[in-house]
Write a protein that binds this DNA or RNA. Structure first.
Lengths: 347, 347
DNA sequence: GTGAAAGCGCTAACAG
DNA sequence: CTGTTAGCGCTTTCAC
């Protein structure tokens, strides 16, 4: 119950040297079958577990962990993403070290620093965007003091630790993102294909952050491809569900109101559903970016451009592992496709 | 870009001994202001970061990580829980080590073993229930070979590593759970208070697993308190959304159908919402255990017994930290209250 | 086949 | 105030 047994304790118990125990445990050199049995028995008797930290220290290699920095675990998107990383990494005997930045650049820097100090073998980061206390409204490069977490991330690269940016691109490193633009374009195109000529855009504004910018661009591209204008009157910003609800009503109260809405995130979609439901507007089509768990039980059911957060995480993990395996090609961006989930009105 | 700088490199660069650098970094002994500056400058110049593993090894203390074992990160409940743990633990300079058991006892044992080998300072575990490949249907102690993950968890205790079971109680250790029974009772009591006499129970069966058993008991207790019977005809089992949908319809097709339903988990609730919506039964009241993000946009809106997964995680973390601080009182169970969220029909 | 020594990066214990 | 020595638990190197 006191000190945990060490290699030496096992060696003593088995009447061999420490090195022999080490050999048995790592399948290293040749060991006589009888000796091996004796050692194994001693290991079991003492409940010995080799100290991984000591091993890492001696071998000089990185620790068998992968650092994952997320803005917010409360968001199911990031939870699923973490699950994807864990699963992809487990097969290699690696464990996930988890940190939350809260969308704050300073905290991100702290967490990355701590991970580097632990000699994490790779770093997967959803960049905070850098506004201290940032969160949803954050904006890249907007912090007075320069790039957020920029220094530790630079340190990561300097230390030769593979770094992959997740969900949003970062400077000069690998990165894995959803097909925000193409997905949004496809979703809006579907609404246009159903005959709509005025499709409103509901989302977080200003669209300075990567995902927002891309989704807005996708909306624009779809309209342009159909030869339609993308007037500012069709665009409404909202950060909260309540704001989105109001924005939806405002959009519909305009002179030439949209006949369909594209909600570019979950919050916007929730507000829109609420607004349409409460005002009894069942004639307005709604499609959202990022699927909602209960989308199919809504009335009318909500079609969506679904992301695959777990695949996002798994892809990032694989990229990092490839780097660990020596892949030294220039940094690349991998795009994980979205999927258009169409849900029909109830029969 | 090659080898990371060590304490020695810094010492050389600053023209002092390794120990002095160590002193500066840890605020240990007294150091002359001038020397300190010189060392700090060298540290910055070299981009030195102390190797936490080496430190832990030397000090003999546990690693500054807390192991968290979850069944499934895809489930938002567990994501939020992880967030609560991370936040509670960060203030102490600890990092979360994340592992997924997939609800499988064997994998749980593996993960716990790996964490123990890393010298994690505490272990927070949502017990898998032990059925290999277990998941939703798992049942404690049902595995032929005996208690699942039991051996490593015993090892944890033997090694003196604080162990806290989360969401479900485990044998002989601290544990933090939601008030499943009281919450369910309160929810059902609310339905009874609204005048309902026959309240159906929809959930995962058999109710051998802790949370299921407790919620079913809560339903029974509420009925008993109102002097009502709890006949088997009012209970329906369902593991999937589709099953829950069918089960709901079956329940409502019985001779003396329930006028209200208590869905004891998210899956059951989703199926019930679907069934009620599709069959146009707006006369049946529905209340669920575990809140849904979109509950308020449903029509009719869904009342719920809300859990607080983040608080669950934070509470478990605090318990573990108290143990680390020397709290040696007997194992205790902490119950995190649920909250009844009533949502009115739309105006 | 096996063991003895050295050393990974760091800090405790004693010097000076 | 600062440096030296020793050693954490393990693996590497080289000897037997």
């Amino acid at each position: 119950m006191e000190r945990r047994p060490t290699l030496h304790d096992v060696a003593g118990e088995a009447g061999v040297s420490a090195k022999t125990v080490s050999r048995v445990l790592n399948g290293d050199g040749p060991v006589a079958a009888a000796t091996r049995e004796r050692v194994l028995a001693a290991v079991r008797r003492l409940g010995f577990r080799p100290n991984l930290m000591a091993r890492s220290i001696r071998t000089g290699g990185p620790d068998s962990t992968v650092g994952l920095v997320l803005p917010d675990l409360g968001n199911p998107f990031f939870g699923a993403l973490a699950g994807g990383v864990e699963e992809a990494v487990r097969g290699r005997g690696l464990t996930v070290l988890l940190g939350c930045s809260g969308g704050d650049g300073a905290r991100e820097a702290e967490v990355v620093g701590a991970f580097l100090a632990r000699r994490t073998s790779a770093l997967l980061v959803v960049p905070s965007g850098g506004r201290p206390g940032g969160g949803p409204g954050s904006r890249p490069g907007s912090r007075p003091g320069g790039r957020p977490g920029g220094e530790p991330l630079a340190a990561a690269r300097a230390a030769g630790v593979p770094l992959v940016y997740l969900d949003r691109p970062g400077p000069g490193a690998d990165c894995v993102v959803s097909s925000n633009r193409a997905g949004a374009r496809e979703g809006v195109a579907h609404l246009l294909g159903a005959g709509h000529r005025r499709v409103g855009f509901l989302g977080d504004l200003p669209a300075s952050m990567y995902t927002r910018r891309e989704r807005l661009a996708g909306w624009r591209e779809a309209l342009a491809a159909a030869g339609l204008p993308a007037p500012a009157e069709l665009v409404a910003g909202a950060r909260t569900v309540a704001e989105a609800e109001r924005a939806t009503l405002a959009l519909l109260a305009r002179p030439a109101p949209p006949t369909a809405l594209f909600a570019s995130n979950v919050t916007a979609a929730t507000g829109a559903v609420l607004a349409l439901g409460r005002s009894g507007r069942r004639d307005v089509a709604l499609l959202s970016f990022d699927d909602l768990p209960l989308a199919e039980v809504l009335d009318p059911p909500l079609s969506a451009v679904a992301q695959d957060p777990a695949l996002l995480g798994a892809t990032a993990a694989r990229l990092a592992l490839a780097r660990l395996d020596g892949d030294a090609t220039p940094p690349r961006t991998e795009t994980v496709p979205t999927r258009l989930v169409l849900r029909a009105a109830r029969g």
